[in-house]
């Protein structure tokens, strides 16, 4: 990480509640302006991670999002204790993020098209998928199926939640089974991959969109880069497992800057028909 101090002042003159330094270009960014720009660096285009609420604000039409299954919370299936008991980790993550778990789901409109929208939040235990995330995503897909509405999922996740053991692994099959029914019924599913989307989330629903979009520079891969580099005993090339790498290798349709994401999703939604019905006319 390069450090650059634009005015040659000492860093204490940039208190962190007002300023954020871009990890990519080193520019000191005024927080308010960064938020206005949906947390994209104005100078170099670096995409900072975006919380679920900010993401919904970015994609959903104003006041169109109504959350569903908001109150489902995790239980402790295995009585899992590492350095801390799992329920304590959950409570800490809830306090830190303000969310009950790592995904928000609901009904929304995107440029006037009614959709079921699910947005993951990396702040909550690394966006890991356990029972709550799996259940909420499955219910979202089932509602899209029942209401014949397109499904949009924005992923941000390190993978399956280890603290739920094999039950967490089974969430891969559970969510994919629901996506598979949408696929058979020809109901559109748009998958948006953001920084980072790895492990069990990428190895399940996130890879299965009719359209798969990625934000620029996002870390996207099956195995952690550390594991991969240890496997071959050498350092990985620059840009390995980034969005552009996946585009080049044929696993995402487009890399779309955050500021264009909503209009691009709307374009695809407007291009698809459900059972001969043009979504544009279904309002």
């Amino acid at each position: 990480m390069r450090l650059r101090n634009p005015f040659g002042r000492k860093t204490k003159e940039f208190p962190s509640h007002l300023w954020t330094q871009c990890p990519s270009c080193g520019e000191m960014l005024f927080n308010k302006q960064l938020e206005r720009n949906h947390r994209v660096c104005q100078k170099c285009g670096h995409h900072f991670k975006l919380g679920a609420l900010e993401r919904i604000e970015l994609l959903a039409d104003p006041k169109s999002f109504s959350e569903t299954d908001a109150a489902i919370v995790s239980s402790d299936p295995l009585g899992f204790v590492d350095s801390k008991p799992y329920p304590e980790r959950i409570a800490a993550a809830q306090a830190k993020s303000g969310h009950k778990d790592a995904v928000l789901t609901g009904d929304a409109q995107i440029s006037g098209v009614p959709v079921v929208l699910a947005v993951m939040d990396f702040e909550f235990m690394g966006g890991s998928m356990g029972s709550v995330v799996g259940e909420k995503l499955t219910r979202a897909a089932e509602r899209a199926y029942a209401d014949r509405k397109p499904l949009v999922i924005v992923s941000a996740s390190g993978g399956a939640r280890m603290q739920e053991g094999t039950i967490a692994l089974m969430q891969l099959a559970k969510t994919v089974a629901a996506i598979a029914r949408l696929d058979e019924a020809a109901i559109p599913f748009i998958s948006v991959l953001t920084d980072p989307t790895t492990g069990g989330v990428l190895a399940s629903f996130a890879s299965l969109g009719d359209i798969v979009l990625a934000e620029p520079g996002a870390l996207i891969g099956f195995s952690g880069a550390r594991v991969t580099s240890e496997t071959i005993g050498e350092k990985l090339p620059k840009g390995f497992q980034r969005s552009e790498f996946l585009l080049e290798h044929g696993f995402v349709d487009q890399v779309v800057p955050r500021t264009q994401l909503k209009e691009r999703i709307a374009f695809f939604l407007n291009s698809f028909r459900i059972a001969g019905q043009d979504l544009r006319w279904s309002l």
Partner: peptide, 10 residues
């Protein structure tokens, strides 16, 4: 596979 999951309802 749908029935795997441990959570508390509202």
């Amino acid at each position: 596979f749908r029935s795997f999951g441990m959570f508390v309802e509202p």
